[in-house]
Design a protein around this nucleic acid. Structure first.
Lengths: 348, 348
DNA sequence: AATCGCCATGTAAACGTTTACGCATTAATA
DNA sequence: TATTAATGCGTAAACGTTTACATGGCGATT
């Protein structure tokens, strides 16, 4: 029943007939030690199945080699991809990751941070709401980098997803497809991403000297579906020939609604969503969308954090992530074959 | 630059004018201490923004309050759901989770386990390959529960996904739909899940006294697509009227192939997949599938682990998880409305 | 009034490391 | 050969906790 690592560095030292100091030097590969005693010690450690006690080590070195990760309630691809990137970069730096996910409100979040406090060397966090950065910094007491959207003026190093810029790209794309009467089905009013995307829409339309036309939505599929009849009428009247939808989920609802009503996509009306959800490529017609590479985003966040952990001067870096366009048949009448992946190829 | 928690329990004690022993008692709420000094100490701790050093604590208590989580290279919903369940149960027990994911081969896995060793109180792990349980147990040196498929005879407490049973349910369903000439498009030969599903198919067909008909696949979408013409011919010849496909991905490829060839689903041929991937409900027609509730699975794994951590006798528990049927239009000609979710409703 | 026992608190050891410092031995230099 | 420098290794302190044990005070019991 050899449960918790009862074999200590003393045992190793004893077996190799050296002091604990030498044992430590051999194990960590630092300090002066002859090759042969080093070998002897390592052999002893191996034989005893020795594992250092990280608590004791961190007590003296003040390092945990752990970074905390705090994520909101994310689903599917979104979640797995960002964790993938974080894990990758952390492993490169010899860090383990302490994960706490599925937080929705500020209280849960603070509790989670408190639980990590003192056991992580730093943290990368993503919040679905505005945060009091000074407060956060205080309760964590370690460097932290935030993943957020660009409009938040953070007092913490930030990886900013530029939703407004993404929206502009989307509008530009619809414009390039020949559409001029471009409406927007927005996300919920108090949502930061939603308002950034709306802002981008407005600015882009202004730049093109087109008239804006906004419907207030809430990011839910059902809502998209329910909006279909009203919007379909405007499409038939020729008042709308394209829609920039606040997110893919809602766009999918809208598409399904349009299908029932016999509206032709993209001929009658072109559609583009946001987030590049996996289903965007599976639905018929394929849904054009704006997406950011979440894996790279996570990786980048950790890289900045690692810098922060090493040089403890607070560099106030802000990295920008611009969503890129994934054109599919909901906006482009005929895609050239070679632009499509095998997946998309099959789905069309 | 108040970086690492420099304020210790001694500072708290000093400020509250008590000994460190009393401070410790107040903070942990154990031992005898009067209410008023307790209050005074907690107030001092708050004022100083005190955070206990977990390393020091674990040094003496031999507990970390951390459980390790080791996952293979999973994608999307699969990954996020299982982590969700694990996180939920862990948080309930006051545990943090140390995550290491995206492992593909045995070497990476062992390295990851070694990195966690000594800093976790236990681990839940999932492997995409057969494992040497004694070896694992040795390198971790703490209790561990494995998530695997039921065919593996593990020496470690196991949460077993019963793929064979799921396959039987699938066949039974196709049979209930009136199909008798049921073929199987399998996964890769050396894959454990694939062979369990095939075994379930064989046993179910034997039980129904039907003739088996197996095509060897590899779980990839492209493969499903490429098999379409050959299988379509057999369908037209009346040799096949249903297919149990080893996983959803491949089934989706097959569906898309059939669409091009004008094969009618489910009239000409019924289809059922495995895994209940999200896209299964988005594709047209909706793909029937067998799925397990990954969130519950993860939650359950942690619950067993917690028991193991507390009573350190090795209870050799084996919990079974049986995939359940998600019927959609690829096998059922007309689904009753009330059986569908809003999502599926929209997708049809 | 003397004794007992309980209660709140303090003292100090222990947990497993790392590392500054010192000492002895060996190698390099004059 | 005498001196210095470099090397290998050990001693012991320190990190921040928890907890067994000791101590003193005070109320209750006799």
């Amino acid at each position: 029943m050899s449960r918790q690592g009862n074999v200590t560095i003393k045992d190793v030292a004893k077996r190799a007939k050296v002091s604990v100091a030498s044992a430590s030097r051999a194990i960590n590969g630092v300090g002066r030690i002859s090759q042969e005693t080093k070998d002897r010690i390592l052999k002893a450690a191996q034989e005893l199945n020795y594992v250092p006690h990280f608590g004791a080590r961190s007590l003296i070195t003040k390092k945990n080699n752990i970074i905390g990760v705090l994520l909101p309630d994310l689903y599917g691809e979104f979640f797995s991809e960002i964790v993938r990137g974080i894990d990758y970069a952390a492993r490169l730096g010899g860090f383990n990751i302490l994960l706490s996910s599925y937080h929705n409100d500020e209280n849960e979040t603070k509790t989670a941070i408190a639980a990590m406090r003192g056991r992580v060397d730093g943290m990368v966090a993503m919040f679905p709401f505005e945060t009091d950065d000074d407060d956060l910094r205080n309760t964590l007491n370690a460097p932290m980098v935030k993943i957020a959207n660009s409009s938040s003026k953070a007092k913490i190093p930030l990886i900013a997803i530029d939703n407004a810029d993404g929206a502009k790209t989307a509008i530009k794309h619809l414009y390039d497809c020949g559409k001029r009467k471009i409406a927007h089905l927005s996300g919920p009013k108090n949502n930061l991403e939603a308002s950034d995307r709306m802002r981008g829409y407005r600015e882009a339309m202004d730049g093109l000297e087109l008239k804006t036309n906004i419907f207030e939505g809430d990011f839910r599929e059902e809502t998209g579906f329910n909006y279909a009849p009203a919007i379909a009428r405007l499409v038939k009247d020729g008042a709308i020939d394209a829609i920039f939808v606040g997110n893919d989920t809602m766009a999918i609802g809208l598409i399904n609604g349009f299908k029932r009503l016999g509206i032709k996509i993209p001929d009658d009306v072109a559609l583009i969503g946001f987030d590049n959800t996996p289903v965007a490529s599976y639905i018929t017609p394929g849904l054009s969308s704006m997406g950011v590479d979440m894996a790279t985003l996570g990786k980048r966040a950790v890289e900045i954090l690692k810098q922060l952990i090493n040089n403890d001067d607070d560099l106030q870096e802000e990295a920008h992530f611009t969503p890129v366009l994934f054109p599919r048949s909901s906006s482009v009448a005929k895609l050239r074959e070679e632009e499509m992946t095998i997946q998309e190829n099959l789905a069309f």
